[in-house]
Simulated scan of single mutants.
Amino acid sequence: MGVETQYVDTYELTRLGQEVHGQAPIARFERLTEDLPQQLDTMVSWSLRGMQDTTGRHFLRVHVKASPTLECQRCLKPFQWPVDSTNRLQVVKSQAALEDEDVLDAESDDIIERIVGSQRLDVLELVEDEIILGLPYVPKHDVCPSLPEPLAQEPDADPGRPSPFAALGQLKKD
């Protein structure tokens, strides 16, 4: 079921096993884009599926696809960072349940992340959180397309130049 609204009832979604999905322009996500370079006019796709396990716990499976523009910290050029994230969140009924002892996911041995359920959950805020969590701490190209020549060379790339530590080695021998 497609949905135009950005709010969902997590209790109903998980109880009925429903799915909602949609798209939004990346510019809509102000917390994400406020410290990033100018964004291309791209869309963020998302889906949210409710489910229950055999013990009656309620979960949301969040899937997000986006390509925010980041600035490479090596060459300072903008580049697209693909985010394709799927996360499973346990829906709990209270803040106190969030603070209960961590539970491991039987499928992956990861700690199950939890959110407090709501009759009016802001889906786009949840999607924005997932994108932000998918960004690298220090964004950089795998191989920068336009590094200045001195940075492109390896530090000891000049075989004719002696190591600065060779002179120290001579002093130590004397």
Rank of each mutant, 00 (worst) to 15 (best):
V8S: 10
T14A: 13
T14G: 09
T14W: 03
G17H: 12
H21Y: 14
P25R: 11
A27E: 15
A27C: 13
E30G: 15
R31W: 13
L32F: 11
T33N: 14
P37R: 03
P37Q: 11
Q38A: 13
Q39R: 06
L40F: 10
D41K: 11
T42C: 09
M43G: 11
V44I: 07
S45A: 11
S47Q: 13
L48D: 07
L48G: 08
G50M: 08
M51T: 07
M51A: 13
T54K: 03
G56W: 09
R57P: 10
R57L: 12
H58K: 13
L60K: 00
R61I: 06
H63I: 01
H63D: 09
V64D: 03
V64A: 02
K65E: 11
K65N: 08
E71C: 02
P78H: 09
F79M: 07
Q80V: 04
W81Q: 14
V83M: 07
D84R: 01
T86W: 07
N87H: 04
K93Q: 13
S94L: 04
A97H: 06
D100T: 03
D105P: 07
A106S: 15
A106T: 05
A106R: 10
E107N: 05
S108H: 05
D109F: 09
I111N: 00
E113S: 02
R114G: 03
V116T: 13
G117P: 09
G117A: 12
G117M: 07
